[in-house]
Design a protein around this nucleic acid. Sequence first.
DNA 1: TGTCAACATAGACACATGTCGAAGTCTTTG
DNA 2: CAAAGACTTCGACATGTGTCTATGTTGACA
Lengths: 119, 119
Amino acid sequence: MSKSLLELTPVETVACSSPLMKQPLSSDAAERIAPLLKALADPVRLRLLSLVASHVDGEACVCDLNDAFDLSQPTISHHLKVLHEVGLLDRTKRGVWVYYSIKSEALADLGALIGGVAR
Amino acid sequence: MSKSLLELTPVETVACSSPLMKQPLSSDAAERIAPLLKALADPVRLRLLSLVASHVDGEACVCDLNDAFDLSQPTISHHLKVLHEVGLLDRTKRGVWVYYSIKSEALADLGALIGGVAR
DNA sequence: TGTCAACATAGACACATGTCGAAGTCTTTG
DNA sequence: CAAAGACTTCGACATGTGTCTATGTTGACA
C-alpha cells in the first residue's frame, strides 16, 4: 500500500476504518465514506444493487435491469454509473451487452463499518 | 406487530429485511430504507453519529458536539434532527442540556442489511 | 457498407439539501 | 420577574440530484 491516507478511494477507506461505534471517524475519512453511502441512499440504486447482487453469479445485464423499473433507459444507465464510479459495481462488456457485477467485499466492508462487526 | 407492511418505519423495515445480496429488495422496502441511508450519507452526520456512538455510555451533549465542528450551532442542530427523525439517535433533555444517544440496534440492523451478515 | 439494437453521454429542468443569520422556546438562577 | 444560556425553528440562498428527451457510440449482421 504505497498510497497516503489522503488519496484512498472511498472503498479503500471503508476497508481500513474501524466501526462507527468504536472510535470517532476522522473528518477526512467521513468525507471519503459519505459518497459511498450517498450512492446507496437512493431507492432505485438500492434495488439495482440488490437485483444485481442477488442475481445468478452476482451479475446482470442492463437490459434485464431496465425492465424491472418504470424509468427511462438513460436514467437507469445513470444510476448504474453512480454505483460503478463509487466502486460498488463492476462493468463488463460482452458483445453488445453490458453486465454489471457486485463487488461484494466493498459491500461487506461497508456493512461492517456501519454495523460494528469485528473486522 | 399489528402494523401492515405499508406503515413500517425505516428502522423497522431494515430490521425485517433480508440482506441486499440474498434477494431483490421490493420497491416499497427500498423507498423506506433509502431515507435511513440518506441520513447517514453526509460527512458531518457520519462524524456526529460516530462521535455519539463512541462516547461514554453512547450518549453526548449537543454542546460537546458543537465544538467538534467548524459549523454554526443551528447547522449541527439540523443534522442531529435528521438523525433523530430517522431513528438512529435518541433525544433526552436533562435540565438545560440535550443529550443524544445511539440506537445501536438500528445501526446493527442496517449494517447487516448491507453487509449481508446472517440475521 | 448500411442498418438496427444496446448502452452511454449531453443538456435542461424541477426539486431536494446544506448552510447561515435571526428569532423563538425553555430552563435555571439572580 | 428579568436576564442569560442551551438548543430549536424559520427563512433565505447557493448547490446538488433525479429525471427526461435528444443525440452519440459501438458491435452484430445482412
